[in-house]
Structure formats: C-alpha cells, structure tokens
Simulated scan of single mutants.
Amino acid sequence: MTHKPSDHHVGPAVTLGLPAAWALHDLEELAAVPGWLRRNVPVLRKRFPAVPEAVWRRAESLDGRQFAAAVGVMGTMVAAVSAAGAATGGRSAAFQTALDGFGLHGLAHLAQAAAFRGYTPGSATSPVVVVPFALWARSRLRRAGVLRPTRARDLALGLGLAGAATVASHTVARRLLSRS
C-alpha cells in the first residue's frame, strides 16, 4: 500500500517535542548566562567597542532571578505555540514559525560562539539539540504534507519573532520582579 504525504500523521513528538527541546536548551542557558556575562562582559566591551555602553550595563545587571523569570515567560510562549501545533496536526502557522525561529536561534548561538571564539551560553546544546530537532521536526511536517513552503521572508519572520519574544520575555520578567 502506498501512502500519500497527507496520509502521514504528525505525532506529538513533533509538536510537543518543541517545548522539550527548548527546555533542554534553556537549562544550559539558565546554568551559564549570569556567570558567563559577569566574566565576559569586560572582554566583549573591548572586542566590540561599537556596541552602546547601555547594552553592556544591562548585560552586567542581569541576575539569575530575572533570567529565570524571562525563561519562564518564554516557556509559556513556547508551550502555547506547541499546543497550537498539536491541535492542528502541525499545520499552525504560529507553530511552524516558532519552529523555524527555534532552529535559526540555534544557528545564531553558533555564530555568537564563532564571533566570541569560544563558548557562549546556548552554544553547547544548539548543535546537538536545537538545530537537529528543528530539522527533524520540519522533515516530519514535510512528510506529512503539512509544512508550508519555506520562503526567505518566513525564515526572517521566524528569527524576528524569536528576537521579539526574547525582548518581551525579559521586559515582562523585569516588570514582574520589580513588583515583588
């Protein structure tokens, strides 16, 4: 019996795998970011003098509580798009865009590590969790016939939304912690 692509089922490993892969990746970041920033902002300041001083001050002031809160906010967003993906059999544009953003986010971590010429938070799990999961999930969506055609603007949207979600999660975390 031959199967048409649309006969394939997108199982929960694809849609619910996104928050699992995200959690593994963010555990690395939770463990590494605050200390890594404290140790490396002076090096980064010298290496990248064009970056505004306000960026370095904000990076130095990021504490573990704020970063953990931001990770929690982002986790809520990832869970929501994954639920949309599960409810639609992977057809959700929000889910597919988030999946693209997640994979590209992993590539951005690898580019950061290359620019830094060493380890940066997130660069250990990106080549073994983030990028492989995103590619695998996209292949499963493609085989099931539900992956929308990928255009450069879709990838730019995915990366842009990942960046916007990061900024939003840190903004919400700062506001939540300033109230406590």
Rank of each mutant, 00 (worst) to 15 (best):
M1K: 15
T2A: 12
H3M: 15
K4D: 05
K4A: 14
S6P: 06
S6D: 13
V10D: 08
P12R: 11
P12D: 14
T15K: 03
L18K: 07
A21H: 03
H25F: 08
D26Q: 08
L27F: 03
L30Y: 07
A32K: 01
G35Y: 06
W36N: 09
W36Y: 07
L37Q: 04
L37R: 05
L44V: 12
R45C: 08
F48M: 14
F48S: 09
P49I: 10
A50E: 12
V55R: 05
W56K: 01
R57I: 05
R58W: 14
A59E: 10
E60A: 14
Q66K: 08
F67A: 06
A70E: 12
V78T: 14
A79T: 12
A79L: 15
A80Y: 05
V81H: 10
S82K: 01
A83K: 00
A84C: 11
G89M: 01
G89H: 05
G90C: 12
R91D: 11
A93I: 08
A93W: 12
A93L: 07
A94M: 09
A94G: 06
L99T: 03
D100V: 05
G101E: 12
G101W: 02
F102Q: 00
G103H: 04
G106S: 06
A114F: 07
A114C: 00
R117S: 13
G118N: 03
P127R: 08
F133S: 03
W136D: 07
R140F: 02
R140G: 04
R142A: 15
A144D: 04
G145I: 03
L147W: 09
R148H: 11
P149M: 09
T150R: 15
A152D: 08
A152G: 08
A152E: 06
R153S: 11
L155D: 11
L155P: 08
G158L: 13
A164P: 01
T166N: 09
V167K: 01
S169N: 03
H170W: 08
A173C: 00
A173F: 06
L177W: 10
S178Q: 14
R179K: 14
S180M: 06
